[in-house]
Amino acid sequence: MDDTAEFLTTIGGVLLFGLLTDFLGRHTFLPRVTLLLLFGLLIGHEGLDLISSVVSERFEIITNIALLMVGFLLGGKLTGESLRSCGSQLFWISVSAVAGTWLAVLLGLLTIGVQLEVAILLACVATATAPAATLDVVVETGSKGRFANLLLEIVAIDDVWALILFAFGVSLVALMMGNEEGAATILSAFWQIGGALLLGLAIGVPAAYLSGRIRPGQPMLIEALGLVFLCGGIAIWLDLSYLIASMVMGSVIVNLARHHDYPFHAIENVDSPMMVIFFVFAGASLELNALVGVGLIGVTYVVCRSAGKLLGAWLGAIWGGSGERVRRWMGLALLPQAGVAIGMALVASTRFPEHRQMLLSVVIGTSIFLN
C-alpha cells in the first residue's frame, strides 16, 4: 500500500469510528473524548501498531488545524454582551483557577523533591485547560444555557492566561539555567503574546466587515476556513501564539460583524471531524512506559492540578458573585487536559532537551486520566 492510500485509509477508518463513539457516548458514562483517546492508544504503536509513520508524521499539522478551529470558535463565545453580563465571574474564576493550579502544582512538586526548573515548567503546563475536549463534550451533550456559555468563555480566557504564564515561565527557567539568551527569551514572550493580539485584530477587523457579503448575512465555509488558515499560517510563520491569535480574531469578528446572522456555524461542520482525528492521534501518541514511569511525580501532578483547579475555581466563583451551581461544578468542568498542555510540553522539551523525558512523560502520561 502506497503512502497516499495508507493515509486516506487510516483517516477514513478513524472518522467512521467517530460515528461509533457518538453511539457509545450516549449509552455509557464515558465521554466521546475519552473513548477516542483509548481507541488511539489501542491502534497506536503501543497497541496494535496500525498507524504508520506516514500518518503519525502529520499529527502536528492536524493538531494545529484542530486547535486553530477551536480557538476561533471559543473566541466567538467572547461577545460584548456575554462579557458585560458575566465579566466579573469570567475574570475572577479564570484568574483564580490558573493561579491556584500553578501554585498548587509548583508547591506539590517541590515538596517531593522535583528540580525547581522542572517544577516551574510543569506548573505552567498544568494551568492549561483542554479547549477541544471541553468544547467537544459541550457539543456532544447538547448543553446550553448560562453555565455552558460561561464554561466556554472561561476556557477561552483560561488558556490565554495559561499561554501568557507559560511564555514567561520558559523565560524564567532560561534565565535560571544561565541561558545567555534569557533576556531575548523574555522579549520573545512579549512578542508571542502581543504579536498574536495584533495579528488577530489585523485580520479580524477587515474580515468582520468583508465576510458574509456574497450571501448576505451568511458567511460561507470557504470564508471561515480561509480566515482560520491564514491567521494560523501567519502566526506560526512569525512565531506567535496561533491559539491566541485565532481566539482574538474570532472575538473581533463576532463583536463587529453585525450583519452576520450566524457567523460561526459555517466552520462547526468541519470542526467535528477534525476533533475526531485529533483525539485519536493524541491517544496514539501515548506511551505505556510513560504511564508506568511517571510514578510519584505523575500522581502528585494530577492530585495538585485537580486540587488547584477545584479550589481556584470555587474561590473565583465566590469572589465573582456566582451562584451555587457555578461554585460547585465549574472547577470540575475545568479539569480536562489535552492538546494545549501537550503542545506546551513539546515546546518546553524542545527548549530544554535535558528535561524532555520528564516533561513529556508526565504531561502525556497524565492526560488520559484528566479527560
Results as ranks from 00 to 15, higher is better:
Phe281Thr: 03
Trp314Ile: 05
Ala245Pro: 04
Gly308Ser: 03
Ala128Tyr: 11
Ala133Asn: 06
Gly250Met: 14
Leu8Tyr: 06
Ser322Trp: 11
Ala202His: 03
Leu68Gln: 10
Gly25Lys: 03
Thr10Arg: 05
Gly108Val: 10
Arg258Asn: 09
Leu41Arg: 00
Ala202Gln: 08
Glu60Gln: 15
Leu230His: 05
Ile193Met: 13
Met330Val: 06
Arg84Ile: 09
Leu201Val: 04
Gln192Ser: 05
Ala345Met: 12
Leu30Thr: 10
Gly212Arg: 06
Glu117Ile: 02
Ile186Thr: 12
Leu121Ile: 14
Leu210Gln: 15
Leu122Cys: 12
Ala345Asp: 07
Arg328Asp: 01
Pro273Ser: 03
Ala317Lys: 06
Met220Gln: 06
Ile368Gly: 00
Leu83His: 02
Gly169Lys: 06
Ser82Trp: 13
Leu359Ile: 06
Arg32Gln: 06
Val254Ala: 13
Thr21Lys: 07
Leu291Gly: 00
Leu210Gly: 11
Ser53Glu: 07
Gly195Tyr: 01
Val228Ala: 03
Gly331Thr: 04
Asp136Arg: 13
Ala119Arg: 04
Ala257Trp: 07
Thr28Gly: 11
Ser211Ala: 15
Leu35Gln: 10
Val294Lys: 08
Val95Trp: 02
Ile277Tyr: 01
Asp49Ser: 14
Leu230Val: 14
Val299Ile: 07
Met69Asp: 04
Ile43Trp: 04
Phe168Tyr: 04
Glu140Ala: 15
Met69Ala: 08
Leu332His: 08
Ala290Ile: 10
Thr101Leu: 12
Ser246Leu: 11
Asn179Leu: 12
Arg351Val: 10
Ser306Thr: 11
Leu48Ala: 13
Val280Gln: 02
Ser85Thr: 13
Leu346Ser: 04
Pro219His: 06
Ala290Gly: 14
Val292Arg: 11
Cys124Glu: 02
Leu122Glu: 05
Ala224Arg: 06
Gly108Cys: 12
Val294Pro: 01
Arg325Asp: 15
Gly343Glu: 01
Leu165Met: 09
Trp92Lys: 04
Met69Asn: 04
Thr141Ala: 15
Asn289Ala: 12
Ala167Ser: 14
Ala123Tyr: 00
Gly250Arg: 07
Ala348Met: 01
Leu107Ser: 12
Leu103Asn: 00
Ser285Leu: 15
Pro336Gln: 13
Leu175Gly: 15
Ile236Gly: 08
Thr79Asn: 04
